[in-house]
Design a protein around this nucleic acid. Structure first.
Lengths: 146, 146
DNA sequence: TTCCTTGCAAACGATTTGCATTGGA
DNA sequence: TCCAATGCAAATCGTTTGCAAGGAA
């Protein structure tokens, strides 16, 4: 998806909720789009120049989450990281380095992903649970730390 | 594993670090052992009678985590939940209800778990990442909420 | 003009820490 | 006796909110 297409889609979703797609919000979405993993408000605050104050970031992220444009990820003590929602970024999983703490996205080839889905459905069957989504979080050592 | 065996194992691990296995700590471990999913400090504080103050709970959980007796789980905005470590509870995954927010453990039959491990290794191979652990978190509706 | 958005500062909730006290070996 | 453990209160950290000013339609 091109960044213009993305912006058009995002803008129309926001318009539908009487929310403006301002330049500050565009920059947050762009930063998340170019990231290789979820980002916290503090990380976005450090990356974005000119500065976007934390309170605005939190408000922007809340608005984007409400509108289904970003999804929260709770993978670390006390901090919430955000990433573009699946319909914008595609389904993926996370590789979490036990040494450096980085969280990287990994898009799983569709044949493997099919197997993951099947396993999830099997487990749901056994446990009387109706899956609507799944996340496979893999902890280990990234290439840099290995 | 019986609760006595468990207490003996835990105690020896703590002794090795010059840490005492006091009655307050035993009650926390017992509460986690009987829970069907991870528990936050606030939840433990509500369950335990006589009362264990929050500050003691947080300290106990930190000590137990350092000693590898409990593992943290970051599955909700801002709260850390703890569960007994794998060597005490066995490997399992989580079923997270999107309606009521409950987190339940699910022990996956070994044939399915073998497939999960294989998928994790395959993904690691493709991504130049050395997996040491994995967590499959399944979001959906529990039997009560379905 | 109307309302959404922004930024600062204050408020909040979960967690951590200082310090004096208690208690087990 | 000695040192770890405990409990209270204060401090900290990430996040949220009140409020007045700024900006787009």
């Amino acid at each position: 998806m091109t960044s213009q297409t993305r912006d058009r889609e995002v803008e129309s979703r926001l318009r539908a909720r009487d929310v403006r797609y301002t330049s500050g919000r565009k920059r947050v979405v762009a930063a998340l789009a170019s990231a290789h993993g979820p980002r916290s408000a503090a990380e976005l605050n450090a990356e974005l120049l000119p500065d976007v104050p934390l309170s605005s970031l939190y408000r922007t992220l809340a608005v984007l989450e409400d509108a289904g444009i970003v999804s929260p990820h709770f993978g670390a003590r006390g901090v919430t990281r955000y990433e573009l929602a699946e319909w914008l970024r595609g389904h993926h999983h996370h590789l979490i380095c036990v040494d450096c703490g980085s969280v990287d996205d990994v898009a799983v080839p569709s044949d493997l992903e099919t197997e993951v889905r099947r396993l999830v459905d099997d487990i749901g069957m056994l446990a009387e649970f109706a899956p609507v989504n799944h996340a496979l979080e893999i902890e280990g050592r990234c290439a840099r730390c290995a």
